[in-house]
């Protein structure tokens, strides 16, 4: 384990402070666990925040049923290894309607199986605060989001009436039906996350590391055909390439990058040379210029 730089120590302390505030101030918080590297770091920090006590809230994974198999395996192993209380929620109604990224397109799939599913799960369990691993450097509408981000009844985010956030004096007050999204990693950047993963030896999904995988090129993205629900188009044949993923989501919507980076140190070295942002592989962001802001207003995490 490497020693943490002063920067990482400050980011770590800040995140733990935020996680403890959420635990102390809300009736029923939950940690949104999306299985990615940011969730892994968030979970690691949350466990530290209450040590030697146990994590005082459950984990929630909103499963679109289209995640990579490796992700689901990693999720279940993690929950078992750490003895976590994990809730998995699927939008059963969406599933019954046959909504999926192939049949319905990325936009509708994300709306029904992610955004609506999350709202269903939060409402069903009565969670009043949801901690997530989103970072402000990911996307420009996120750069303006608060650490404690208020949602009115119906989970709506209104960027123009956000509560000013001064010092560390978070305004945690809620009325009936209102809720809070809490982002302990707000001030972390992608490279901070990898440096921390390296220093703290945090397990992450193997898909982040380069390996020879069968991929097809489609609309400029390299897609890993994780199962046969994704039909091959005429003329398409998967080719074995050394690839890895910078972010993880639904497999038909997540593009891989060609890479030889097989360790965390390799990934960091590769990132320092890279000229593309991590969300570049995400098909859903390209829909329109302000697409993330629109999705977030509707309750997307």
């Amino acid at each position: 384990m490497n020693a943490l730089s002063p920067t990482l120590r400050r980011l770590e302390a800040e995140a733990i402070h935020i996680i403890r505030e959420a635990a102390a101030e809300f009736r029923k918080p939950v940690l949104l666990y999306s299985i990615g590297k940011d969730s892994s770091v968030l979970l690691h920090l949350a466990l530290k925040a209450f040590r030697p006590g146990r994590l005082p809230f459950p984990l929630l994974h909103v499963d679109t049923t289209w995640k990579f198999k490796d992700m689901i395996r990693f999720r279940d192993d993690t929950a078992r290894r750490l003895g976590l209380d994990l809730i998995v929620h699927v939008n059963a109604d969406g599933l019954a309607r046959g909504i999926g990224p192939v049949a319905s397109g990325s936009s509708l799939h994300t709306q029904v199986m992610k955004t609506e599913a999350l709202r269903q799960a939060l409402d069903r369990h009565g969670f009043d605060a949801a901690l997530g691993g989103a970072r402000r450097d990911e996307e420009r509408s996120r750069a303006k989001e608060r650490v404690f981000s208020f949602r009115s009844a119906g989970h709506v985010w209104d960027p123009r009436t956000q509560r000013p956030e001064l010092w560390r004096l978070f305004n945690t007050r809620l009325g009936p039906g209102e809720s809070m999204r809490v982002f302990p990693l707000s001030n972390w950047t992608e490279i901070d996350v990898w440096h921390y993963v390296a220093a703290e030896n945090i397990p992450v999904v193997p898909l982040y590391f380069a390996a020879r995988r069968p991929v097809v090129e489609r609309d400029g993205a390299m897609i890993l055909r994780d199962d046969d629900r994704l039909p091959l188009l005429p003329g398409e044949t998967p080719a074995l390439k050394s690839v890895r993923f910078r972010t993880l989501g639904c497999y038909p919507l997540t593009g891989a990058i060609e890479s030889e980076a097989a360790t965390v140190e390799d990934i960091i070295a590769e990132m320092l040379r890279s000229r593309n942002s991590e969300r570049q592989g995400r098909v859903i962001d390209r829909d329109e210029t302000a697409s993330m802001e629109r999705k977030k207003r509707e309750g997307y995490f």
């Binding site: 402000r136 450097d137 996307e139 420009r140 509408s141 996120r142 750069a143 303006k144 960027p159 123009r160 956000q162 707000s186 001030n187 950047t189 302000a290 802001e293």
Partner: peptide, 21 residues
């Protein structure tokens, strides 16, 4: 690059605090 909200880009002004790294 900084004015992240739609209204800001349309009006060419900065409305809210943005954090950059």
């Amino acid at each position: 690059a900084l004015d992240g909200l739609e209204a800001e880009r349309e009006q060419g002004i900065t409305i809210d605090v943005a954090y950059r790294y």
